[in-house]
Nucleic acid binder design. Structure first.
Length: 404
DNA sequence: TCTGGGGTCCTAGGACCC
DNA sequence: TCTGGGGTCCTAGGACCC
């Protein structure tokens, strides 16, 4: 194994030691990452089992009209609606991206975040279903309840992902965690009919990568000793925290794989990526990560935004925009009230036709969750942005939250 | 025919205070 | 009058994630 050279920029010696639980020394931690398989699509398939095995894509705007096709069959149980009645991707026109694709659809090269119009070229015959967040949230709650009954230290990472600390769970160390992972998979399937993939490793970073190894329905165990063989050949993008921008910079330095990243000195990475991110890149490439599984956290901000069906202009589309703006403020206010928070930093976001975004915010000297107060402050923010150009998105955000 | 919506965290400069 | 370092808050933008 290659050992990085010490560097002038290496200030790790001065850094405080990472917090470490005395009952669970880092070397024996067993952390799992659980990822639901094609979650939104799988939930839809529970409703529409006749679509099993077909390419299905979830996404698009809620204003789609072809739901009417489904309405024609209102009298029928959902499972008996004929396949021909479902809207096809090729008939979709408008903005929007794929949120999830079934595995048969992925074979055509379509996947998350791809524009629907582009996806329609790759797989025109795919069935397109609109997103139903309320339904996904219901299933999300159910599978997380199942996990919590088995392993109480769980970190929520969104609607379809969690980290689980196996370390202190009875039997959590057996077969390096495989036994417990199997139990969780089976229990979730029995309770919901949904499948998931689980990676188990000494830390969150490696567990997250491991959960992708055997999708769908997979279980993967990664040990520290597997670093060279299983992790280093992977592209850097597989590290959670390296996105497209960083990857591009790394490529420019002839760094494509995690192993190539690990071979660079921490000093070089710190020089090129900054003290904090550079040092983190180095640690990540060596599979080191001491972050604990965090079971509770407070929200930082609440926001609502919407992309228009066509680009709008502040003057020419004044009435339409005013209505949208008011509605966004009302929805943010409702979200805050429902969650029991109020905030004092109010902001707006605009995205212009060229996709460039701007934000403006303003901190009040009082907290609020009131739609009118939010609209007033957000309105002042709006006056500080360039409203001459057409824009495609408007958003309203409230930060600086405190519990009511 | 490009590119959703909801978040978090980080950086960096300026204001302001001690 | 000039010259200092903090420290904290505010604001804007950007990277990243699900």
């Amino acid at each position: 194994m290659q050992v990085p050279e010490p560097s002038l920029f290496d200030e790790e010696d001065d850094a405080p030691l990472p917090a470490r639980s005395t009952s669970a020394p880092a070397t024996s931690r067993r952390i799992a990452h659980l990822d639901m398989d094609a979650f939104y699509a799988s939930v839809e398939l529970l409703r529409y089992p006749q679509l099993q095995g077909l390419p299905v894509v979830i996404g698009g705007s809620r204003r789609r009209t072809d739901d009417a096709l489904l309405k024609q069959h209102e009298g029928l149980p959902l499972a008996e609606i004929p396949i021909e009645a479902f809207p096809l991707l090729k008939d979709y026109t408008g903005r929007g991206v794929i949120t999830t694709a079934t595995y048969p659809a992925r074979q055509f090269g379509v996947g998350s975040a791809m524009g629907l119009m582009k996806a329609a070229k790759l797989c025109p015959q795919a069935i397109l279903l609109p997103v139903d967040f309320d339904e996904y949230r219901r299933y999300s709650r159910r599978f997380k309840e199942v996990i919590l009954e088995i392993a109480p230290v769980m970190e929520d990472r969104g609607v379809d992902e969690v980290y689980i600390d196996f370390t202190e769970v009875p039997g959590g160390q057996r077969e390096s965690g495989r036994t417990l992972a199997r139990l969780i998979q089976k229990s979730i399937f029995e309770a919901t009919g949904l499948t998931c993939s689980i990676g188990v490793a000494p830390n969150k970073l490696l567990a997250k990568m491991a959960s992708e190894f055997n999708k769908p329905k997979g279980i993967s165990i990664v040990q520290v000793s597997d670093l060279q063989e299983k992790i280093w050949p992977l592209p850097c993008r597989k590290i959670n925290g390296i996105g497209p921008k960083t990857d591009e910079k790394l490529q420019a330095l002839s760094i494509s794989t995690i192993g190539e990243l690990a071979a660079r000195s921490k000093g070089e990475l710190v020089e090129r990526f900054g003290r904090s991110y550079g040092a983190w890149l180095h640690e990540a490439a060596w599979g080191r990560d001491e972050r604990p599984v965090v079971t509770e956290s407070e929200p930082v901000s609440v926001s609502r935004e919407t992309t228009f069906e066509r680009d709008l202009h502040a003057v020419r589309d004044k009435a339409e925009l005013a209505a949208i703006f008011t509605s966004l403020c009302e929805r943010v206010a409702a979200d805050l009230q429902r969650k029991g928070y109020e905030g004092r930093t109010i902001g707006v976001k605009l995205r212009y036709a060229d996709f460039k975004s701007v934000t403006r915010d303003q901190t009040l000297d009082f907290h609020t969750a009131d739609a009118q107060a939010i609209r007033h402050a957000a309105g002042l923010c709006l006056k500080r942005v360039d409203l001459q150009r057409r824009f495609r998105l408007l958003g309203v955000r409230v930060g600086g939250l405190r519990k009511v």
